[in-house]
Design a protein around this nucleic acid. Structure first.
Lengths: 344, 344
DNA sequence: GTGAAAGCGCTAACAA
DNA sequence: TTGTTAGCGCTTTCAC
């Protein structure tokens, strides 16, 4: 029997609290975990002892028996760390962080620098450090989906993944904006304003956000003249290049829907430089409603807004829901909304 | 005795590996943890069993007995999350992440939105989730130092803290650039180029990085005419305002040392707009060597470079060292270097 | 060199 | 309602 339950430098245990309060460990445990079914005066006594000792439950011990860690991994491919500077990313992270905090769950950041790191990631996930994982939409050949599948780790992706792991795979759980619907709305808006030749500057076609927006465009522009579509890379420069291409092929175009705001600003620059009035001669619509981009554009950009922070929050919620009930939705599509400014 | 050691969905344990390899749990444990003192052929047998079963040690169980988690918390005040967009921050984080990864230690990101969150932070740190904490330099009244002290959590700060917790407090461990020395070098460089009236645009004086640089300036400009010092806020706008102030008070100045690059660019803009040649009429030196700021300035900025990623790495190293040996250094000051470009 | 056994701090049956 | 007890999966003396 330990005589001195509390060694200096050693943190007090349930046992110590129980001794001080004059009850059993089980009772202390009950109180610490909510205290239902314990008589009020005992609850008080225990609470008092907890306070006096500065008791905080030992996480490892609790995890060992409950098999839950109360932590979730967020996996960020290194190229994306730079994307922290992209407000898109940091807003999504913030949404995740807010929701996890609200649910008393910790965020563990896993940065992946190169493929070799996936071994470490697998060890980490398999080691039971976390209850689930959040990842961002990946390239087709990314090893992560296979890893999480193999070790049975609940995972939610940000952005619709471009792959399925197998023919009978229900597909990964994910949260995405309604890219296709948003694109349709953008194009319909342009048509409604009387535009006849609506061009599209698409994003890189290996990302579903780009292809989904392209699909949305095509849903509306059914005749589908391929000369009206140019492919960019989500950067202003890429948008400018695509815009020049389009003007060359179709000098008659009177509207452009760009797959994101950054490309739209590139397009605006080219139009301005060529002496086109926006929206007089050519109307322009973007996508994202990026902070300090869409509004600051010249002219301010009409664009499709997606709720990025909300998407982050949904990712966390979907994952945490998954943990509880086995039949949570596999995917959540958040709505977009057209924000009308001056460019269209 | 469990007949079926490996239930589907249940992860294999040491026990299962031991059974398959025909050895005791102790032996498996030894092999998993390095394998010294175990005969080679047994090591192989165990390794084989580990591979076959896909065994990964259970983290909680291990932590429970070793009292080490292999994880470190990085605490970020919410206002700073925006600073993810500041390359300074993301580079420091990257340095931390790299070093932790190299030492097989996990990074747990703790974001603090408001003061109320500190209760959660304390619970988390006290709960034994992490072996130590990394935090960024705080305001004088930040509750974090008191918390980490109370629960005895080893903590390293990024940037010299402005406080001490008590008269006999050795002070918090921290990593910082040699702000004072760097400032001295900047000013000496200006004097060496024949400048007579060297002004200083200081940062907000409640941050030690600002006061240390001011001190460095004063070390060299000993006469110390107060009219040569204006206080900014580390932003370009603040730098511009300070520059205007200085020009008003001291139209004769021929050099400016700004406490960071962003303020220097603000100063450059004002000088340009007032028709001063840089460096002809007024020489300018910045601080930081911020990516895509110093080099892109007009003219390119002579500035004091600090190794931000290295500082992040040092923070992790200092903390992890602290964990091992009780007498690690309390502080690490990393050197700065003057990078000469066109502005001075 | 290897195994047996104790125990890290907690929760969750099960008894009382 | 409360206490007793049996582990969770691992490391670590201590014998052999």
């Amino acid at each position: 029997m330990p005589e001195q339950l509390r060694v200096p430098g050693d943190r007090p245990t349930l046992e110590a609290v129980a001794a001080l309060a004059g009850v059993s460990r089980a009772t202390v445990s009950r109180v610490v975990n909510g205290g239902d079914g314990v008589r009020a005066h005992l609850v008080d006594k225990v609470r008092e002892a907890v306070r006096e000792l500065g008791y905080v439950p030992n996480h490892a011990a609790r995890t060992l028996v409950t098999r839950r860690t109360g932590a979730v991994a967020v996996i960020i491919p290194e190229p994306e760390i730079r994307i922290f500077s992209d407000p898109f990313f940091s807003r999504q992270i913030r949404g995740i962080s807010r929701e996890l905090t609200a649910q008393d769950t910790q965020l563990v950041l896993l940065m992946v620098e190169d493929r070799g790191d996936y071994e470490r990631i697998e060890r980490y996930l398999a080691g039971g450090h976390v209850d689930g994982a959040l990842a961002f939409s990946l390239h087709t050949d990314d090893p992560l989906p296979e890893i999480t599948r193999r070790i049975g780790m609940p995972t939610v992706y940000g952005g619709r993944p471009g792959w399925t792991t197998g023919p009978d795979d229900p597909g990964a759980a994910y949260v995405d904006a309604d890219n296709r619907g948003g694109a349709r709305e953008a194009v319909r808006h342009l048509l409604a304003r009387g535009r006849r030749s609506v061009a599209h500057i698409a994003g890189p076609l290996d990302q579903t956000s780009a292809t989904d927006r392209l699909d949305g465009y095509r849903d509306v522009v059914v005749e589908g003249d391929p000369s009206l579509v140019a492919v960019g890379d989500f950067t202003p420069t890429g948008g400018a290049r695509a815009m020049r291409e389009l003007l060359e092929r179709r000098p008659d175009l009177d509207a452009v829907f760009a797959a994101n705001d950054l490309m739209a600003t590139g397009a605006l620059a080219v139009l301005r430089e060529r002496g086109f009035e926006v929206p007089g001669d050519v109307a322009v619509v973007g996508f994202d409603d990026t902070e300090r981009v869409a509004e600051a554009a010249e002219p301010p950009l009409t664009t499709v807004r997606q709720d990025v922070e909300g998407m982050g929050r949904m990712m966390a919620r979907l994952l945490l829901g998954t943990l509880g009930s086995p039949r949570a939705p596999r995917a959540v599509i958040t709505p977009t909304v057209l924000v009308r400014r001056a460019s269209a």
